[in-house]
Computed example of a mutant assay.
Amino acid sequence: MSGVRLKPLSRQTIVITGATSGIGLATTRMATERGAAVVLAARNEDALRRLAEEIRGRGGRVEYQVADVADPVQVDAVAAMAVKAFGGFDSWINDAGAFIYGRMEDVSLTDQRRLFDVTYWGVVHGTLAAARHLRERGGAIVNVGSVLGDRAIALQGPYCAAKGAVRNATDAFRMDFEGEGLPISVTLIKPGPIDTPFMEHARNATGTKGTRNPPPAYHPRVAARAILHACETPVRDLYVGTAGWLTSLGGALAPRLDAPAPDRSAAPRTGPGAAPPAGCRAPATRPSAGRGSWRGRHGRHGRSGPP
């Protein structure tokens, strides 16, 4: 990726999937604040319309396309909307995801397949659609993974498995593009605990309520800064939050010491690019349709980044 050149954010058009909630919503608002045009994708048309009206009310440039990222035809329609509205796009952010709590044997295979359709196949469909457009003009593909793609924890097995698949698919796409000499930067974002409503929107097979990320949970704008940094600067992997980086490191070095019971737990990799934004770390070596909220229930336990 060292030869890839990316535009300043203010000159970009950016496609964002999962744009109406959590990290996707924070990224949308931050991107438009910094002058980018955006094309938003999510399943909830009402939420998309309200968000677009909010952005236009502040003078931002925005269009939206209703899409379920599990369907490659609908993902292609998002790319087509970007071409129609803005003549194309410069960065594509794969953020849409699904989440289920429960032991592996308690989560139905139907639910596990749906989680993979959104969380893994949605990234594959988005990356393929973006690459077809960017292979000539160049640009960035940013996949939102998770530190749980580096290691599994109890009651989140299907999600961890899907994010592990996202990590490996992202690496494979990057190698393919580099092998072809394509001018496409491919970045994997690895958030640790983020204070979003993602978990409250999740399906729960445990029979309990009130699940939330353990503190410290970072403000979603910290993740948004990392994502938009990757839209401007070629970089391989970015961890969001020191706690997330330590989770991955602990899983690699002492897999049974740092994980919740019953199990008490990829070595970090380097990548080119400028220094990451505050709150993010470059390695040293949902079944919800979106509800228009970017914060979760962490309250005083949530860690805020700069606005």
Score class of each variant (00 low, 15 high):
Ala162Ser: 14
Val124Cys: 06
Val39Tyr: 04
Trp245Pro: 01
Thr233Gly: 01
Lys190Tyr: 02
Asp258Ser: 12
Ala37Gly: 13
Val124Leu: 14
Met104Ser: 14
Pro220Asp: 13
Val166Gln: 05
Asn213Lys: 01
Thr187Asp: 05
Leu228Gly: 04
Thr247Lys: 04
Cys280Leu: 10
Gly139His: 05
Ala278Pro: 01
Leu238Ala: 12
Ser2His: 09
Pro191Gln: 09
Ala274Lys: 01
Ser185Phe: 01
Leu257Tyr: 09
Gly102Phe: 03
Pro183His: 03
Glu33Ile: 00
Thr233Asp: 15
Gly305Gln: 06
Ala80Val: 06
Pro287His: 00
Gly139Ile: 03
Ala226Asp: 00
Ala85His: 00
Ala275Ser: 14
Ile184Asn: 14
Leu257Asp: 06
Asn213Met: 12
Leu182Gln: 10
Arg167His: 12
Gly241Cys: 10
Arg151Asn: 11
Arg225Gly: 07
Gly139Cys: 07
Thr119His: 06
Asp150Ile: 02
Glu105Phe: 06
Ser21Leu: 00
Ile100Cys: 04
Thr285Asn: 02
Trp121Ser: 07
Gly3Thr: 08
Val4Phe: 00
Ala282Asn: 10
Asp195Val: 00
Lys7Ser: 10
Ile153Gln: 12
Glu200Ser: 15
Glu53Val: 03
Thr20Leu: 02
Pro193Thr: 13
Arg43Pro: 15
Arg286Tyr: 05
Gly97Tyr: 00
His125Asp: 09
